[in-house]
């Protein structure tokens, strides 16, 4: 265009300029798409995951409704027993090789506090033979509970998953 000051141009060298420009862009893409590495987990450790979902005992036992109480209940909801929904929190302790590594309390889930308590904790441990003891209190401060013990051997980068199926211990270990 005759009105315009001619912009700086490299002529044929412009193509070389574009190759340089695109090469720089490609190097940035190629490098940062997979580098630098991130050390996600130490090579000389194993991982223990304590995770389960367990409902605590009901806070109040079911009781029989009186005839008078039943009269005031619509027919569709007329059941002879009244069962308050709220449950106790679940308290958990975990020992590894006789050393306590976790102690915690899980509140019952749900707006009415009638759902299961949830746990998810992870611990890095050295590889080798480990004895674990899991103590669970699901019946309130004075209530009952249960405990499990087990012995496991962990190799570096192994994941041990400690889970419960109802009250039975479920250990997830790598297949050898």
């Amino acid at each position: 265009m005759s009105y315009r000051t001619k912009p700086t141009s490299l002529g044929i060298g412009r193509y070389l300029g574009q190759i340089i420009g695109f090469t720089i862009f490609a190097l940035i893409l190629g490098y940062f798409s997979a580098s630098p590495d991130w050390r996600y987990f130490p090579a000389d450790k194993a991982l223990v995951k304590l995770s389960f979902s367990l409902s605590g005992e009901r806070k109040e036992a079911c009781k029989d409704r009186t005839a008078k109480e039943l009269e005031n209940i619509p027919n569709s909801a007329k059941v002879p027993k009244s069962c308050p929904r709220e449950r106790h929190p679940v308290r958990v302790k975990l020992w590894l090789n006789d050393k306590e590594v976790f102690a915690g309390e899980g509140s019952p889930s749900g707006l009415s506090k009638d759902g299961p308590s949830q746990f998810y904790q992870t611990f890095e441990v050295p590889p080798g033979q480990h004895t674990l003891k899991l103590e669970v209190k699901d019946g309130g401060p004075d209530g009952g509970g249960f405990e499990h013990t087990a012995s496991v051997e962990l190799r570096p980068r192994d994941i041990l998953a400690i889970d419960l199926d109802r009250k039975a211990l479920m250990l997830g270990l790598p297949t050898r």
Binding site: S33, S35, D37, R39, Y40, P42, A43, I159, L173, P174
Partner: peptide, 24 residues
């Protein structure tokens, strides 16, 4: 992927996954 073993070193795509090292 093997959910019974932890990955040790990850070649991250930093364009999208930059938030994970921050969480770590």
């Amino acid at each position: 992927a093997d959910l019974s073993h932890v990955p040790e070193v990850i070649h991250l795509d930093w364009f999208y996954l930059f938030v994970y090292p921050m969480i770590d």
